[in-house]
């Protein structure tokens, strides 16, 4: 497959007030790839994602999505770009006052010209894709955490966007459901051809789904490793990277 960059992050510097979170971060994501952003807690994974989505403005540097600099373009271009992006937020961000079906219907009714009946059926198909059929009429507060994640995923995919951002899609879920979500991510990536950008620190999930990964580090405020996660696990030079992949503590345990 010829590389076809869909997202380019170029010398991004992210600051909140006086705190520099990311310093000079550059990488590209190719079309159709499952790209994972990993790193220890607090290393700026979520910050990076917020900048890639245009939710926060970078201190300097650029983020280009489909060739459009999302921080420097016009409002109209930015909104058009957003239509090609779906996001699963960490807490699912389902609207609490709407049923699952209404949550999914919101973007579909806004951006397509389908009658209500067809939309209802489409929503059942989408919920079925994430194994939630039968829960159309439930409110988000009435379903479990794993179901919320899947419903959020279904809403992120409502318009079959080219790029899906998933913020910790498997955190807080049991291993079986996590594996099912990994499988679902693979399925969606293969059959719908969506590019996936996943922020996670679930090791199993990384090995299952990722084509490529970047690892962020808090001290370096940037990328310390990039590549296929299986290669990184086996042959990374950096001890922090090895520790992450082998799930080792930073120092030897005192009770030795």
């Amino acid at each position: 497959m010829t590389p076809d960059p869909i997202i380019q992050v170029d010398r991004l510097v992210a600051r909140y007030g006086d705190d520099t979170i990311l310093e000079d971060v550059s990488f590209t994501i190719d079309r159709g790839e499952v790209f994972v952003i990993i790193g220890a807690s607090g290393c700026g994974k979520s910050t990076l994602m917020r900048h890639m989505l245009g939710l926060d403005r970078p201190f300097s540097g650029q983020v280009k999505v489909r060739g459009i600099d999302i921080h420097g373009c016009t409002d109209k271009q930015f909104r058009r770009t957003l239509r090609n992006i779906g996001v699963l937020f960490q807490n699912s961000a389902l609207f609490g006052s709407m049923t699952l079906a209404e949550n999914l219907a919101l973007p579909i009714m806004e951006y397509t010209r389908l009658p209500q009946k067809a939309v209802d059926q489409l929503i059942r198909m989408k919920l079925c894709m994430v194994e939630l059929s039968g829960f159309e009429g439930h409110l988000p507060s009435e379903i479990s955490g794993g179901m919320k994640k899947r419903a959020g995923l279904a809403r992120a995919m409502a318009l079959n966007p080219e790029i899906l951002f998933l913020d910790e899609p498997t955190s807080g879920l049991d291993p079986v459901i996590s594996a099912e979500i990994d499988q679902l991510i693979r399925h969606i990536n293969q059959s719908l051809g969506a590019t996936m950008v996943i922020v996670t620190h679930d090791l199993g999930s990384i090995m299952n789904v990722a084509d490529r990964a970047v690892m962020l580090d808090k001290k370096r405020r940037g990328i310390i490793a990039e590549g296929d996660p299986r290669t990184l696990r086996n042959s990374a030079d950096n001890p922090d990277v090895r520790r992450f992949f082998r799930r080792e503590a930073r120092s030897e345990s005192p009770a030795r």
Partner: peptide
């Protein structure tokens, strides 16, 4: 093959999914 995969992903042949729901 790729179309078949999508159809199975949305459970196209499942009676309950792709038929209109009776009014509650």
């Amino acid at each position: 093959e790729n179309v078949g995969r999508i159809l199975s992903l949305v459970h196209f042949d499942d009676e309950n999914v792709c038929r209109p729901l009776p009014e509650k």
